[in-house]
């Protein structure tokens, strides 16, 4: 069963093609990872899925529904949640408010209710607080920082708060853009554990972009490899690892003679 499917997605900026004819799908209840060298188009792909970029061609289906024309908030309401490569927390808010903001599409309080903060508005806020505390803050072990402004937190914790905010969106599909980039070993292990728990205990499908290969191979069920805006391989981690096209994309051509020729050409050019 596919939860997300991209069909022939094509995206270009001016004349530069960022994504060419991308097709791939994310199986339900899986951890699917998109890998690829820098500039391969991984984040552009994420931006197309969450609606920030509009691809010129192709469609994106979420649970069989074509979401290509939907605006980002509508996609969020369907259960597409994400984190960002360069942490995008709201600096003027506390950790708690950042997380609560994630639940925006699932709350209803209108202007008058908010002004009065009585009855339903108050009950909704209390229920939200309780849900956030019980399901998210406890789970991610960030109860000690809930009152702190996010700007003052160390990098690893900021990443974790961003994950918390995405979880508050009650995702069906959780998209993580480089969840462990820049983390130390311990933080990486924590994050890997959280991601696995999210899949297994919450029943949420995870789609992530990640560069850390050991983590990718450890926790992914399904890997998609991008290079120059094209899908060059996809399948189980072990299969992808052995795929010659993938090895070439990462390491260049394995043939010593070719490498030497290329080196010589470079030195001459310089």
């Amino acid at each position: 069963m596919k939860i997300l499917e991209a069909v022939n997605v094509h995206l270009s900026f001016g004349g530069v093609a960022a994504l060419r004819d991308i097709s791939f799908s994310v199986p339900e209840d899986s951890i699917t990872t998109v890998i690829g060298p820098n500039g391969a188009g991984k984040t552009s792909l994420f931006n197309c899925i969450s609606g920030f970029y509009r691809p010129q061609q192709g469609s994106i289906f979420f649970r069989g529904q074509d979401i290509s024309r939907l605006k980002p908030p509508a996609r969020a309401a369907l259960g597409l949640a994400r984190t960002f490569q360069n942490i995008a927390l709201f600096r003027g808010m506390t950790v708690l408010d950042n997380i609560k903001l994630g639940a925006h599409v699932h709350t209803k309080t209108g202007l008058l209710g908010a002004l009065a903060y009585l009855g339903p508005a108050r009950r909704e806020e209390m229920a939200l607080r309780e849900e956030v505390e019980r399901r998210i803050i406890d789970f991610l072990e960030i109860d000690h920082i809930r009152r702190q402004p996010v700007a003052s937190l160390p990098y690893g914790l900021q990443k974790r708060v961003e994950l918390a905010r995405a979880l508050a969106m009650r995702p069906q599909l959780l998209m993580l853009d480089e969840p462990v980039a820049g983390m130390n070993r311990e933080e990486k292990e924590d994050m890997a554990r959280f991601i696995l728990d999210i899949k297994e205990e919450w029943g949420v499908t995870v789609l992530m972009v990640e560069h850390d290969m050991s983590m990718v191979m450890d926790i992914s069920d399904h890997v998609v490899v991008l290079n120059f805006g094209q899908v060059i391989a996809s399948g189980l981690p072990q299969e992808v690892q052995k795929n010659p096209a993938v090895i070439e994309a990462y390491l260049g051509d394995g043939d010593i003679a070719t490498l030497r020729r290329r080196l010589n050409a470079n030195t001459e050019a310089a």
């Binding site: 980002p72 908030p73 969020a76 994400r82 709201f90 600096r91 003027g92 808010m93 925006h104 905010r165």
Partner: peptide, 14 residues
């Protein structure tokens, strides 16, 4: 506040 701090991310968050 979210719109003030990061409008594009806010939109993606719903």
């Amino acid at each position: 506040i979210a719109i003030r701090d990061r409008d594009i991310s806010a939109e993606i968050l719903g």
